[in-house]
């Protein structure tokens, strides 16, 4: 995955459109998790979000020759998934009513969308950096943030002092903050740059 990042999105997308199946796999690998997390901000349910994004990728594959990207692959994917989610919500709302469904097909980025993208990007960065943390530091941080365990519970479970738990969590936060400082600082700029 790391080496593959050297291939630009532009190159990746063009090669995908030329029928390179591997490029499709690479695009999926690179963007699927982010897009699922992004979709979840609209749909709140993770499994539903997975399904919606998978359906999107099926369409993306089938209509590859009709796709026109004016900005970047990333912004295209984000906006497409956003529209897909909004359409899903709309359909759900009007499911038993004979109403005209307004297709969300917007290419504009509202502040709300922009914020959601920003958050997703940050979350993905956190995820990536957490993976690089020393094993115990990572484990304690996840027990706290993912499993919502109290510091004492973690200490008891791992048979370490509460102080060590606090130190490890604090260490993880410090590393994350330092790694992401640039990202945190320039987050808005980066996001805008992408689009």
């Amino acid at each position: 995955m790391k080496e593959k990042q050297f291939i630009t999105d532009n190159h990746l997308f063009n090669s995908f459109r030329e029928g390179n199946e591997n490029s499709f796999a690479l695009i999926f690998e690179k963007y699927y998790p982010i897009l699922v997390v992004f979709a979840k901000k609209y749909l709140t349910d993770l499994d539903l979000s997975k399904g919606i994004v998978q359906d999107f990728f099926v369409k993306f594959y089938e209509k590859k020759n009709e796709i026109e990207i004016n900005t970047s692959l990333k912004s295209y994917l984000y906006l497409s998934v956003k529209n897909t989610c909004l359409n899903y919500i709309e359909r759900k709302k009007t499911q038993n009513k004979h109403q005209i469904i307004i297709e969300h097909n917007s290419t504009d980025i509202s502040d709300e969308v922009s914020n959601k993208i920003e958050e997703t990007e940050l979350e993905y960065e956190i995820f990536k950096y957490i993976e690089k943390l020393p094993e115990q530091c990572k484990r304690i941080f996840k027990m706290s943030r993912v499993e919502y365990k109290k510091n004492q519970e973690i200490a008891d479970e791992l048979q370490i002092s509460k102080r060590t738990v606090e130190t490890q969590i604090s260490k993880a936060l410090r590393i994350l903050r330092e790694s992401l400082s640039h990202h945190l600082k320039w987050l808005i700029f980066i996001t805008l740059h992408f689009f």
Partner: peptide
Amino acid sequence: KKIWRHSEALNNFDSIDIDSDF
């Protein structure tokens, strides 16, 4: 706090199986 808040989403990334979904 921002990192703290958003680190909750780790769970989401962790429960995504790229290969099987692909």
